[in-house]
Design a protein around this nucleic acid. Structure first.
Length: 468
RNA sequence: UCCUCAGUAGCUCAGUGGUAGAGCGGUCGACUGUUAAUCGACUGGUCGCAAGUUCGAAUCUUGCCUGGGGAGCCA
């Protein structure tokens, strides 16, 4: 505690960690439980700074006791000045003896939806404005915060430049998915010209969308700053109804000039190790709670990521392993297929039992910008497959040769004109370069063991859901 | 978008053609350095919506809506 002799405001995590008996402090937060006794009342106050709350003992000797206690119920907001004392009860080192108590806002127990017991995540999604006050969601969001901090720390330590790629875009980046349109048109009065919507009258003069990836712009910046990364929201208008998809999600996309596929894989692996390590160091209490209440493999998973080397196989080797597995897959195995969830899960969960990096995929099933391998049958792509959640990272060495890139754009039925600036990067000072994309929510999901991706982002956007 | 399961009290669920139930919550009381406190009483319903079958529907049929799980698409 920095100011033990002065009465001042502290976060509850500070009080619990380093509070000293006989000091007087002020805490502020929301009441989790109230237990009335004959001549005093226990209340547990949580301010979001930690899993544990502070137990406050309110004696009936304090001014306005009866009225205050009546107004204090689960969910009420309070500010309490009190003296820290060693706790005679079990479960906490310190507790607070209240001296003065202010109730900022009541929470009518007849209508407040959060009870002291466990709720289903489905129900909590219906009260998205209140669910962050629960143990599990607050633990998840603290872990999410730690992950975000670790992302920046990892790249900043390595001299990467954080680039803010645009959210509004006119390019559709390899057709990575259905895009949300952005317009200033009144949709009930669309200007029509020759039977089609006349986008020349719209804000940007052409069809515009929410970005699905910052990769192409990241490549632009990598051609000036060598190592860059993006970390921001991306959007997919896919009608995906799964526990692993969101319409709005955050992506981390590093892009490195003078880098090949091996460098890309090495960076991705050390990146994941770094983030897991950081979370284990800074959110120990939250991770232990998640281990206990959500998924009892969370700590093993983290240990596994941090301490073991990821498996690495080529696509061709992976297909051979699947063929030899003698497992009855729903989708048949053959060289050239786009691996299905069941195949990826078998590799990561049953065969390797840890993350596995699969490289050099068939050219036909990958995007045009991935670098063609010698022979042309495969490209220098890599996916990292994690147990339970599948693909967590997808990356590649980019095609830096102008002629090859142009022919690949044409081969996929795309118009090179549209990519004029992307091609210019190969005309002027092209270099081998590589990068990857990571779905941030999937990382948090993997880390926390949460079954549904909607519960690792504060305000999930999914088909038919934009409340809150 | 497809397959599948579900929707009944504030929450979690039981009820499968004949008077709408339990636990938890909430309220009141008792008891108690408690910590998902405990004990007792009380409280609580448009059975997702609409139509149909039937003497009678929470229950059977059809359509729609919403949610879960799986698949596809992908990160």
């Amino acid at each position: 505690m920095t100011q033990p002799t002065q009465c001042s405001v502290f976060r509850i995590s500070q009080v619990l960690r380093s509070g000293e008996p006989d000091t007087t402090v002020i805490i502020r937060g929301w009441v989790r439980t109230k237990r009335e006794q004959k001549t005093f009342t226990f209340i547990e106050v949580n301010d979001g700074s930690s899993m544990a709350g502070l137990q406050v003992v309110v004696s009936d000797a304090i001014v306005g006791y009866a009225e205050s206690i009546k107004r204090i119920n689960t969910g009420a907001s309070v500010e309490i000045e009190g003296k820290l004392v060693p706790s005679p009860g079990k479960g906490q080192r310190l507790e607070m003896q209240a001296i003065a108590l202010t109730v900022h806002g009541e929470a009518d127990p007849e209508t407040y939806p959060l009870q002291k017991k466990r709720h289903s995540f489905e129900f909590l999604r219906d009260i998205g404005h209140l669910r962050s006050r629960t143990n599990t969601l607050s633990a998840v969001f603290r872990v999410r915060n730690a992950c975000a901090a670790a992302v920046h720390q990892f790249f900043q330590e390595r001299g990467f430049l954080w680039v803010h790629t645009p959210i509004l875009t006119a390019s559709d980046c390899e057709g990575a998915g259905e895009m949300f349109s952005v317009t200033r048109f009144d949709l009930n009065k669309l200007p029509i010209k020759e039977g089609k919507v006349d986008f020349s009258q719209d804000f940007f003069g052409k069809p515009t969308y929410l970005t699905v990836s910052g990769q192409l712009e990241a490549e632009i910046m990598a051609m000036a700053f060598s190592d860059v990364y993006t970390f921001g929201p991306t959007f997919r208008a896919e009608n995906s109804n799964t526990s692993r998809h969101l319409a709005e999600f955050w992506m981390v996309e590093p892009e490195m000039a003078f880098c090949d596929l091996k460098g890309d894989m090495d960076l991705a692996e050390s990146f994941l190790k770094y983030v897991f390590k950081h979370v284990m160091e800074t959110c120990q209490e939250d991770m232990e709670f998640l281990q206990q209440r959500i998924d009892d493999s969370v700590l093993d998973t983290a240990d596994n990521i941090i301490n073991s080397e990821f498996a690495r196989v080529t696509y061709t080797e992976a297909i051979a392993l699947l063929e030899k597995s003698n497992k009855a897959f729903e989708y048949p195995i053959a060289w050239g297929i786009d691996m299905q969830s069941e195949h990826e899960r078998w590799l990561a969960e049953e065969y390797f039992k840890k993350p596995v990096i699969v490289t050099n995929y068939p050219t036909e099933i990958k995007a045009f910008y991935m670098r063609l391998d010698d022979g042309g049958k495969t490209v220098s792509a890599m996916d990292i497959l994690a147990p339970k959640i599948g693909e967590i990272i997808g990356g590649s060495q980019r095609e830096e040769r102008l002629d090859v890139l142009e022919s690949r754009i044409r081969a996929q039925g795309l118009d090179p004109e549209v990519y004029w600036w992307y091609l210019d990067l190969r005309r002027y000072g092209t270099v081998p370069h590589a990068g990857f994309g990571l779905g941030f929510e999937r990382l948090v999901q993997f880390m926390t063991g949460m079954a549904n991706i909607r519960d690792v982002i504060p305000f999930p956007r999914t088909p038919m859901n934009v409340e809150f």
